[in-house]
Amino acid sequence: MASAISPLAASSPSGTTVTAPKTRSYWSNVLRRFLKDRIAVACAVILLLLILAAIFAPWLDLADPYRGSMIKRLRPIGTEGLPLGSDEQGRDMLARLIYGGRLTLLIGLLPVVFAFFIATVLGVAAGYAGGWVNTVIMRTVDVFFAFPSVLLAIAISGALGAGIVNSLVSLTIVFIPPITRVAESVTSSVRSLDYIDAARASGGNALTIVRVHVLGNVLGPIFVYATSLTSVCMILAAGLSFLGIGVKPPEPEWGLMLNTLRTAIYVNPIVAALPGVMIFITSLCLNLLSDGLRSAMNVKD
């Protein structure tokens, strides 16, 4: 039977002796490309240090971030016993900055994580179902889009009252619309591709197709977009605290610290600017990191 098929036989050696470089998996490729990007790696290291410092703050042998001293107020950087000076109540700035990282990172990252999950569900549902489902979800999202994000966050936080949980809620609500928009547009472009039809033709039901073929292709772009929002979220969270509708004193939080030290800007400007510097470094690193991730995860080149 196979005798009539000579061109085929010629084209396909029956043995598997072909030697070729071992193919790497997708994620090891991503890692390799990411490691080549020096700036992104540096940012990742800085962020990792900040996060580790925040997590292990109680074991770092730091001064009590809540204990002030009326004598040692607003000391400059490098004072003995106060490596980064002290704030307007004489509390150790180093300890407060590290402890402040805990809250700041928490309310900077958690809303994006929550919004990422909720918005992915909404956006994928809207994009895949289309029709009136899409209309309902996307027009509702558009309503939230009508407000500037800062204003919306302030409005919701103001209505709910100050507090950590309330600012988490308000920031989550602020970040759902943009991520939903991205998820919807990526999903509807994937939905019309041939491999979705091919999956249906080979018997996949809607749930399998969404779970395997849609999510597999849209999670990457949505994730990268969400990482780019974390820096915005941090700044917004700090802004809420700065305005007094986020974290309440005496909790250490970078935005709040920036607010209370504002009055000392002429007395000891460098110490007063330190929380701002931390916010700046963290959000810059997050931005550059998400940029690096984006280029490392782009397979199609």
């Binding site: 997708y26 041939d194 491999y195 091919a198 033709a201 080979s202 597999g216 292709n217 990457g220 199609k300």
Partner: peptide
């Protein structure tokens, strides 16, 4: 409909598409 349609598609009858580059999922 439902599970019987899923079993029919790809089970009794399946399809080869014109453009294999588009018909295979790029992430698996």
């Amino acid at each position: 409909s439902g599970t019987r349609l899923s079993a029919y598609r790809g089970g009794d009858v399946s399809m080869v598409f014109q453009e294999p580059a588009l018909a295979l999922d790029p992430v698996y």
